[in-house]
Simulated assay, not measured.
Amino acid sequence: MSRLLTRIAVSALSLLAAVATAGAAEQPREIRVDYAYYSPPSLVLKRFGWLEQEFKADNIPVKWVLSQGSNRALEFLNSGSIDFGSTAGLAAVLSRANGNPIKGVYIYSRPEWTALVVPKDSPIKSVKDLKGRKVAATKGTDPYLFLLRSLHQEGLKKTDIEHASLQHADGRTALEQGKVDAWAGLDPLMAASEIDAGSRLIYRNVSFNTYGFLNTTESFSRQYPEHVKRVIASYEKARKWILANPEETAKIVAEEAKLSLPVAKLQLTRNEFSNPVPGAEHIRALKAAAPILIEEELVKRGTDVNKVIDDLVDPTWAKAIVR
């Protein structure tokens, strides 16, 4: 009898160990999320620690990584350095078309990154005036793709300008130091340049905007679907808080991004937070923008960009959360 009881006890312990191991395998060791100065919800989340609270009971730590542009966020996702990255929509399309297996699972906002900036005393007044000029833009980001679309709209090509490939902050600095003639900017850097240096927007076209996507990798979403929902739920909490607390949001953005309060307020007036579920509106915007990727040979010849967009945009998780 004692041997039987011993065997039963050993079997029970083995079963408990197996269950514990299986449970551990069903959750990640940590959640790695980027924050970006162009994504106010990420700054609010980081400030209040809501993601940390969400995963505290599971003993899953949250790691924050700064993304200085869509190109950096996409590089981090592709290398496995982060699980969630904040990017512009068209930049995400370009990255997926070139082999980065990501999913756009939430719209954190429609930020301002569709404008061309010149110094306050510049003689440049229009996109056509950029011909033969030196223009800064960060490759692989929406401002760069916006620049190309704006040139094409005026019958110009990228070879008609001298492109200076600079990260966003460096582009602003180069503009204000007179090292480039124009800059394809984004907020909050663009708002800061306007207010602090008197820089001017010579062209702005919100219809070219392809929204701010929160992306995750296909492998993470496949392995941890419930954790994707929980991250989105935290982002949704931040979005609703922003809508209810615009003044406090501006203070958080100013402090986190080290901006003046007027700059943060200007940035927020050019952010739109109304439609967080990826869907038809966002797909239309991406498909309208997609031809530039083919025309400029930024994707492999023969790439079905519309299919890439359909594969990228995945509302499954957001639909389950957003009410």
Rank of each mutant, 00 (worst) to 15 (best):
G185I: 09
S67I: 02
A257I: 00
R172I: 10
P111Q: 09
Y35E: 04
L45D: 10
I161E: 13
L186R: 06
A91Y: 01
N100V: 15
Y108E: 07
N98P: 03
P143H: 07
E247D: 13
Q177W: 11
K229D: 14
L266A: 12
T316H: 09
G302P: 03
G198I: 09
A285W: 05
A289G: 03
N59L: 02
A88V: 00
L151G: 01
D160F: 10
E256Q: 13
N59I: 03
N271A: 08
G155C: 13
T269E: 15
L77A: 01
Q53G: 08
Q167Y: 08
R32F: 09
E112S: 08
L259S: 04
Y203D: 10
H227N: 12
T217K: 13
E272C: 01
Q167F: 08
K179M: 14
R284M: 11
A184P: 00
S193C: 13
L151E: 01
L166Y: 08
H152L: 10
F220D: 05
E256V: 02
S109T: 07
L74T: 02
Q53K: 15
S126R: 15
L166G: 01
A20S: 15
P28S: 07
N245W: 01
L259A: 08
A280T: 14
L145Y: 05
V206W: 07
G69A: 05
I124H: 12
S193N: 13
E54C: 00
K258G: 04
V93T: 04
G69T: 02
R96Q: 12
V305H: 00
F213N: 02
A288C: 04
E226F: 03
Q27T: 13
P276A: 09
I283D: 03
N78M: 01
Y108S: 05
R7H: 08
P61S: 06
I283M: 06
L214G: 04
F146T: 06
K103S: 09
L293R: 00
E295K: 14
K258V: 10
A73G: 03
K237T: 14
F76H: 07
G49Y: 11
S221G: 11
A137R: 02
G198Y: 10
F48K: 11
D304Y: 04
P119G: 06
D181K: 11
A18R: 09
L243G: 02
K240I: 11
P123N: 13
Y35Q: 03
S67M: 02
E297K: 14
A288Q: 10
V253E: 02
A288K: 08
L186G: 04
P188L: 10
A36V: 05
S122C: 06
P276W: 12
A36H: 06
R222Q: 13
L77S: 01
A182I: 08
V231C: 05
N71I: 00
L151K: 05
P315W: 08
Q68K: 07
G104S: 11
T141W: 01
L74P: 01
F48Q: 14
R200D: 12
D34E: 09
V65L: 04
